[in-house]
Design a protein around this nucleic acid. Structure first.
Length: 482
DNA sequence: AAAAAAC
């Protein structure tokens, strides 16, 4: 089977050939002919199966007839995250290089002006995250009555993120005569219901290939102490131990605050690291991802915003700094490596107390993951000696910041051994970009809370009802308060 | 328990 047999237009075909592809993936072979015919498609596939091209290519072919009118986009593609939306735009640019199409990307965190201009000019392709799309719609900058092709990508993730009501709303604004292409990695009951609602006599194309069975990925568990400094030290040791084998790595944390902390720590230890999480300013997000893709950064510390769908062909390692508490996240995370036929390694740091999460992961993927060192039984013992191997520190201090304080005050150079093992060119502009990273929301929130409660405490009782002065009736008083 | 997404 070749791309030439799928019914794509010559313009599209030549762009595909130029990109170096000749053989379609199963999802592409299954979906493209039907999509070109104008049929609805239900695609069940993980990312990394060539899913994006399976809707981009037929859409380009179909878009060759007709042109866009102002404020009336001809197609709409919904994506759950900003990065995925941007990635789809890249695909339209790459495969649409022989076309003259107006592409508009509507995502949050960036200015409205440019997006409005593109809508005004008439968009052939509109790629959006739900929030910003509805925002434009409510401002009257957009009519969806001209949409001929509607794509819902990563539907199960949209469900996880609570986007379904938004999607239902958007769906009602699009003519029912449209063609709908619907993609999801899994088919939970809610999603099945949605497909019955949105799709008409769809062609079902299923590519069952969960990332966990990807034989290109070598999975290993890594024993670690549970204290933050101990985990960071173990991580550095792990990275250095991989030496040249580690070309680049995505390091996943469970919390945005942990991403920020770990990123700063790695940067101080002269690692070539970047960070990515949802509370960062959008420009920094784009820059980090871009530099990681281009190889200017070898480590990317990320939250689960990067777990699904991100297509970076050449990631040698995925490291779960925190074990994912949802087993499917594990599958998605490690699926960022071992892509496009390459081999990849996936390490998961396991500390005392992570056993139950490990259990559900192994249950889901249907196999036991090998330990790099030791095993679950040695974990407990290991954690007893969890004292920080340095003296002269204030006991009972916050171990979280100690680790960074050391290097900040001393600014020591990396040791000879680490110099050999760690990626060089450490004087990255990304370290300077550290300042651009916003504080995680929770930190901001607690800061606000602290200052609020302080000012409130000056005035009067926190929970006292307003308007009674000191004569609060008994029944209005908060129980337990004097 | 947390992440993502709108000003």
């Amino acid at each position: 089977m070749t791309f030439a047999e799928l019914g794509l237009s010559p313009k599209v075909l030549s762009a595909v050939t130029d990109a170096g592809y000749t053989t379609p993936t199963p999802i592409q072979a299954g979906a493209i002919p039907h999509a070109i015919e104008g049929k609805d498609v239900l695609g069940i596939a993980q990312t990394g199966t060539g899913k994006t091209a399976s809707f981009v290519l037929p859409m380009l072919t179909r878009l060759e007839r007709g042109r866009a009118r102002a404020r009336m986009p001809r197609t709409l593609i919904l994506e759950p995250t900003r990065e995925l939306a941007a990635q789809v735009e890249e695909n339209f640019i790459k495969y649409g290089k022989n076309h003259r199409l107006n592409i508009a990307l509507l995502i949050g965190g960036v200015s409205f002006d440019e997006q409005e201009k593109k809508l005004e000019r008439g968009a052939d392709v509109l790629i959006a995250t739900p929030g910003r799309l509805l925002d434009h719609f409510e401002r009257g900058k957009l009519l969806l009555t001209g949409v001929d092709i509607f794509v819902i990508d990563e539907a199960d993730r949209m469900l996880d993120m609570g986007f379904i009501p938004d999607i239902e709303r958007i769906c009602k604004l699009i003519p029912f005569t449209r063609q709908t292409l619907f993609f999801s990695a899994t088919m939970p009951p809610e999603i099945t219901k949605l497909t019955q609602q949105f799709l008409q006599a769809p062609v079902r194309v299923e590519v069952a290939k969960p990332a966990s069975t990807n034989i290109n990925i070598t999975q290993k568990l890594v024993k670690t102490g549970s204290k933050p400094w101990a985990k960071r030290a173990r991580l550095r040791e792990l990275i250095r131990g991989e030496g040249d084998q580690l070309k680049n790595a995505i390091i996943f944390c469970n919390r945005k605050s942990e991403v920020a902390t770990l990123f700063r720590s790695l940067a101080r230890h002269e690692f070539d690291a970047g960070a990515l999480h949802g509370d960062m300013d959008q420009r920094a997000r784009m820059m980090m991802l871009d530099n990681f893709r281009k190889g200017k950064l070898s480590l990317l510390v990320a939250s689960d915003v990067a777990a699904r769908g991100l297509d970076i062909p050449d990631v040698s390692h995925v490291i779960n700094y925190d074990i994912p508490t949802h087993a499917d996240d594990y599958v998605h995370r490690i699926g960022r490596t071992g892509r496009a036929g390459r081999s990849g390694k996936a390490f998961t740091l396991v500390a005392k107390g992570d056993a139950k999460y490990l259990d559900s992961i192994e249950k889901l993927i249907g196999e036991d993951v090998e330990w790099l060192d030791g095993d679950l039984s040695t974990l407990e013992a290991e954690d007893q000696g969890d004292e920080k191997p340095q003296r002269g520190k204030k006991a009972g201090g916050k171990s979280t910041s100690e680790d960074s304080r050391n290097t900040r005050t001393r600014k020591r150079k990396p040791s000879a051994s680490s110099e050999a093992d760690t990626p060089q060119e450490a004087k990255t502009p990304e370290v300077a970009a550290e300042e651009k990273i916003e504080k995680p929301r929770e930190e901001r929130k607690s800061a606000i809370k602290a200052s609020n409660s302080k000012s409130r405490a000056r005035n009067r009782d926190d929970d006292a009802p307003i308007g009674f002065g000191d004569n609060i009736p008994d029944f209005m008083k908060v129980p337990g308060k004097v």
